[in-house]
Simulated assay, not measured.
Amino acid sequence: MYKLDKTTIHTTIREALHFRHATKMFDPNKKIAEDDFNLILESARLAPSSFGFEPWKFVVVQNKELREQLVPYAWGAKNQLPTASHFIIALARTAKDLRYDSDYVMHMMRDIHHLPEEALLARHSFFRNFQESDFKLLEDERRMFDWACKQTYIAVSNMMNTAAQMEIDSCPIEGFDKEKLEAILTERKVISPEHFGVAVMVAFGYRMKEPRPKTRLPLTEIVEWIE
Protein backbone atom coordinates (compact mmCIF):
# COMPACT_ATOMS: atom_id res chain seq x y z
CA MET A 1 0.00 0.00 0.00
CA TYR A 2 1.31 3.44 -0.95
CA LYS A 3 2.11 5.53 2.13
CA LEU A 4 2.36 9.29 2.34
CA ASP A 5 5.23 10.83 4.23
CA LYS A 6 4.53 12.14 7.72
CA THR A 7 4.75 15.81 6.74
CA THR A 8 2.13 15.34 4.02
CA ILE A 9 -0.15 13.44 6.43
CA HIS A 10 0.15 16.17 9.07
CA THR A 11 -0.57 18.89 6.52
CA THR A 12 -3.60 17.05 5.13
CA ILE A 13 -5.11 16.48 8.58
CA ARG A 14 -4.45 20.04 9.71
CA GLU A 15 -6.00 21.49 6.56
CA ALA A 16 -9.11 19.34 7.01
CA LEU A 17 -9.47 20.39 10.66
CA HIS A 18 -9.27 24.06 9.70
CA PHE A 19 -11.59 23.54 6.72
CA ARG A 20 -14.38 22.11 8.87
CA HIS A 21 -16.76 24.63 10.37
CA ALA A 22 -20.42 24.72 11.40
CA THR A 23 -21.92 25.66 8.06
CA LYS A 24 -25.12 27.66 8.61
CA MET A 25 -26.31 27.69 5.01
CA PHE A 26 -25.42 25.44 2.10
CA ASP A 27 -25.48 25.94 -1.64
CA PRO A 28 -28.75 24.17 -2.57
CA ASN A 29 -27.54 23.66 -6.14
CA LYS A 30 -24.55 21.51 -5.15
CA LYS A 31 -25.07 17.85 -4.28
CA ILE A 32 -22.64 15.40 -2.71
CA ALA A 33 -21.62 12.54 -4.98
CA GLU A 34 -23.03 9.16 -3.99
CA ASP A 35 -19.64 7.51 -3.45
CA ASP A 36 -18.47 10.43 -1.30
CA PHE A 37 -21.55 10.26 0.91
CA ASN A 38 -21.29 6.49 1.20
CA LEU A 39 -17.77 6.97 2.57
CA ILE A 40 -19.13 9.47 5.11
CA LEU A 41 -21.69 6.89 6.22
CA GLU A 42 -19.02 4.19 6.37
CA SER A 43 -16.99 6.37 8.73
CA ALA A 44 -19.99 6.32 11.10
CA ARG A 45 -20.34 2.56 10.80
CA LEU A 46 -16.67 2.09 11.70
CA ALA A 47 -16.73 4.51 14.65
CA PRO A 48 -15.81 3.19 18.11
CA SER A 49 -18.48 2.54 20.74
CA SER A 50 -18.48 1.34 24.32
CA PHE A 51 -18.20 -2.46 24.37
CA GLY A 52 -18.60 -2.31 20.59
CA PHE A 53 -22.40 -2.29 20.91
CA GLU A 54 -23.01 0.47 18.30
CA PRO A 55 -25.96 2.13 20.06
CA TRP A 56 -27.01 4.22 17.06
CA LYS A 57 -28.89 4.52 13.82
CA PHE A 58 -28.61 7.21 11.14
CA VAL A 59 -31.68 8.40 9.26
CA VAL A 60 -30.84 10.24 6.03
CA VAL A 61 -33.71 12.65 5.39
CA GLN A 62 -33.86 13.54 1.70
CA ASN A 63 -37.65 13.84 1.51
CA LYS A 64 -38.48 17.52 0.97
CA GLU A 65 -41.88 17.30 2.63
CA LEU A 66 -40.45 15.74 5.79
CA ARG A 67 -37.69 18.33 5.93
CA GLU A 68 -40.30 21.09 5.74
CA GLN A 69 -42.33 19.40 8.47
CA LEU A 70 -39.28 19.34 10.76
CA VAL A 71 -38.36 23.03 10.34
CA PRO A 72 -40.80 24.49 12.94
CA TYR A 73 -39.39 22.16 15.61
CA ALA A 74 -35.72 22.37 14.62
CA TRP A 75 -34.83 26.02 15.14
CA GLY A 76 -31.11 25.21 14.90
CA ALA A 77 -31.60 23.79 11.40
CA LYS A 78 -33.92 26.37 9.85
CA ASN A 79 -31.30 27.28 7.22
CA GLN A 80 -29.70 23.85 6.87
CA LEU A 81 -32.84 21.76 6.35
CA PRO A 82 -33.87 23.56 3.14
CA THR A 83 -30.34 23.84 1.69
CA ALA A 84 -28.25 20.83 2.76
CA SER A 85 -27.37 18.23 0.17
CA HIS A 86 -27.86 15.50 2.78
CA PHE A 87 -29.43 15.74 6.23
CA ILE A 88 -28.98 13.10 8.92
CA ILE A 89 -30.93 12.55 12.12
CA ALA A 90 -28.67 10.56 14.43
CA LEU A 91 -30.62 8.27 16.74
CA ALA A 92 -29.43 6.69 19.96
CA ARG A 93 -30.82 3.47 21.43
CA THR A 94 -32.91 3.50 24.58
CA ALA A 95 -32.52 1.57 27.82
CA LYS A 96 -34.80 -1.15 26.44
CA ASP A 97 -32.11 -2.10 23.93
CA LEU A 98 -29.02 -1.35 26.00
CA ARG A 99 -29.65 -3.15 29.27
CA TYR A 100 -27.09 -5.90 29.82
CA ASP A 101 -29.82 -8.54 29.40
CA SER A 102 -31.57 -7.05 26.33
CA ASP A 103 -32.17 -8.93 23.09
CA TYR A 104 -30.11 -6.31 21.25
CA VAL A 105 -27.03 -6.71 23.47
CA MET A 106 -27.22 -10.49 23.21
CA HIS A 107 -27.61 -10.23 19.42
CA MET A 108 -24.49 -8.05 19.21
CA MET A 109 -22.42 -10.46 21.28
CA ARG A 110 -23.65 -13.63 19.54
CA ASP A 111 -24.28 -12.64 15.95
CA ILE A 112 -21.99 -9.67 15.35
CA HIS A 113 -19.04 -10.22 17.69
CA HIS A 114 -19.32 -14.02 17.35
CA LEU A 115 -18.30 -14.62 20.95
CA PRO A 116 -18.07 -18.24 22.05
CA GLU A 117 -20.44 -19.09 24.92
CA GLU A 118 -17.83 -18.88 27.67
CA ALA A 119 -16.56 -15.50 26.47
CA LEU A 120 -20.14 -14.28 26.00
CA LEU A 121 -21.05 -15.11 29.59
CA ALA A 122 -17.94 -13.37 30.88
CA ARG A 123 -18.62 -10.26 28.78
CA HIS A 124 -22.27 -10.29 29.87
CA SER A 125 -21.27 -10.36 33.54
CA PHE A 126 -18.69 -7.61 33.05
CA PHE A 127 -21.19 -5.40 31.19
CA ARG A 128 -23.80 -5.90 33.90
CA ASN A 129 -21.33 -4.78 36.56
CA PHE A 130 -20.36 -1.78 34.42
CA GLN A 131 -24.01 -0.70 34.13
CA GLU A 132 -24.96 -1.41 37.73
CA SER A 133 -21.88 -0.20 39.59
CA ASP A 134 -19.36 1.70 37.50
CA PHE A 135 -21.68 4.09 35.62
CA LYS A 136 -24.92 3.35 37.50
CA LEU A 137 -26.80 3.42 34.20
CA LEU A 138 -29.70 1.28 35.44
CA GLU A 139 -30.86 3.89 37.94
CA ASP A 140 -32.51 6.05 35.29
CA GLU A 141 -33.58 5.42 31.69
CA ARG A 142 -32.53 8.91 30.62
CA ARG A 143 -29.05 8.24 32.00
CA MET A 144 -28.81 5.19 29.77
CA PHE A 145 -30.03 7.17 26.74
CA ASP A 146 -27.52 9.95 27.40
CA TRP A 147 -24.75 7.35 27.61
CA ALA A 148 -25.78 6.13 24.16
CA CYS A 149 -25.92 9.71 22.86
CA LYS A 150 -22.31 10.33 23.92
CA GLN A 151 -21.21 7.48 21.72
CA THR A 152 -23.41 8.59 18.84
CA TYR A 153 -21.57 11.93 18.91
CA ILE A 154 -18.32 10.06 18.26
CA ALA A 155 -19.79 8.58 15.09
CA VAL A 156 -21.09 12.01 14.02
CA SER A 157 -17.64 13.51 14.60
CA ASN A 158 -16.15 10.76 12.44
CA MET A 159 -18.57 11.69 9.65
CA MET A 160 -17.80 15.40 9.83
CA ASN A 161 -14.03 14.88 9.83
CA THR A 162 -14.27 12.44 6.94
CA ALA A 163 -16.37 14.97 5.03
CA ALA A 164 -13.85 17.74 5.71
CA GLN A 165 -11.05 15.68 4.20
CA MET A 166 -13.10 15.63 0.98
CA GLU A 167 -13.83 19.37 1.31
CA ILE A 168 -17.48 18.66 2.08
CA ASP A 169 -19.06 20.94 4.67
CA SER A 170 -21.15 19.93 7.65
CA CYS A 171 -22.96 21.25 10.69
CA PRO A 172 -23.95 19.39 13.87
CA ILE A 173 -27.28 20.58 15.26
CA GLU A 174 -28.74 20.32 18.75
CA GLY A 175 -31.29 23.11 18.35
CA PHE A 176 -34.54 21.17 18.21
CA ASP A 177 -37.57 20.13 20.22
CA LYS A 178 -36.71 16.50 20.92
CA GLU A 179 -40.22 15.44 21.91
CA LYS A 180 -41.93 16.96 18.87
CA LEU A 181 -39.32 15.66 16.43
CA GLU A 182 -39.68 12.17 17.81
CA ALA A 183 -43.47 12.45 17.57
CA ILE A 184 -43.20 13.28 13.85
CA LEU A 185 -40.74 10.45 13.21
CA THR A 186 -42.93 8.03 15.16
CA GLU A 187 -46.04 9.06 13.25
CA ARG A 188 -44.19 8.47 9.98
CA LYS A 189 -42.98 5.11 11.28
CA VAL A 190 -39.34 6.19 10.97
CA ILE A 191 -38.60 5.29 14.58
CA SER A 192 -40.06 3.22 17.38
CA PRO A 193 -39.76 5.35 20.55
CA GLU A 194 -39.29 2.18 22.60
CA HIS A 195 -35.98 1.59 20.86
CA PHE A 196 -34.67 4.96 19.61
CA GLY A 197 -34.58 8.65 20.45
CA VAL A 198 -33.07 11.63 18.62
CA ALA A 199 -29.53 12.33 19.80
CA VAL A 200 -28.35 15.02 17.38
CA MET A 201 -28.73 16.07 13.75
CA VAL A 202 -26.05 16.83 11.18
CA ALA A 203 -26.25 18.48 7.78
CA PHE A 204 -23.84 18.01 4.87
CA GLY A 205 -23.28 19.97 1.69
CA TYR A 206 -21.20 22.79 0.23
CA ARG A 207 -20.81 26.22 1.78
CA MET A 208 -22.32 29.37 0.31
CA LYS A 209 -19.52 31.59 1.62
CA GLU A 210 -16.19 31.30 3.36
CA PRO A 211 -16.30 31.23 7.17
CA ARG A 212 -14.39 33.39 9.60
CA PRO A 213 -11.07 31.98 10.88
CA LYS A 214 -11.43 29.53 13.79
CA THR A 215 -11.19 30.89 17.32
CA ARG A 216 -10.07 28.39 19.94
CA LEU A 217 -8.37 28.36 23.33
CA PRO A 218 -4.62 27.65 23.10
CA LEU A 219 -3.38 24.14 23.88
CA THR A 220 -1.73 25.43 27.04
CA GLU A 221 -5.18 26.17 28.51
CA ILE A 222 -6.85 22.87 27.63
CA VAL A 223 -4.04 20.32 28.00
CA GLU A 224 -2.27 19.33 31.21
CA TRP A 225 0.64 16.89 31.15
CA ILE A 226 1.34 14.63 34.12
CA GLU A 227 4.71 12.92 33.82
Rank of each mutant, 00 (worst) to 15 (best):
A163D: 03
M201K: 01
D177M: 04
L4F: 15
R212Q: 13
E132C: 05
V202N: 02
L137P: 08
A77G: 10
N129P: 03
F87M: 13
R45N: 07
V156H: 06
A33V: 05
S102D: 06
L115R: 08
P82T: 08
I112W: 05
F130K: 07
V156I: 13
D111L: 04
Q69S: 11
R45Y: 07
K214S: 11
W147K: 01
A164E: 07
P48Q: 03
P28N: 13
R123T: 14
I112S: 06
T8L: 13
D103L: 09
L185S: 06
F176A: 06
W75T: 05
R123M: 15
F53R: 01
A183N: 14
G52V: 00
E34I: 06
D103V: 11
P213F: 14
M160N: 11
L66R: 06
M108A: 11
M106L: 08
I168G: 02
A92F: 00
T23K: 04
I89T: 02
E179P: 00
N38L: 01
L91E: 01
T152H: 02
I89C: 03
T186C: 04
E174A: 09
I88A: 05
R99D: 05
D35S: 10
A122S: 15
P72C: 08
A164G: 10
E54I: 00
R216N: 08
V61D: 00
A92S: 10
K150I: 02
T7K: 13
P213R: 13
R67M: 10
H114L: 05
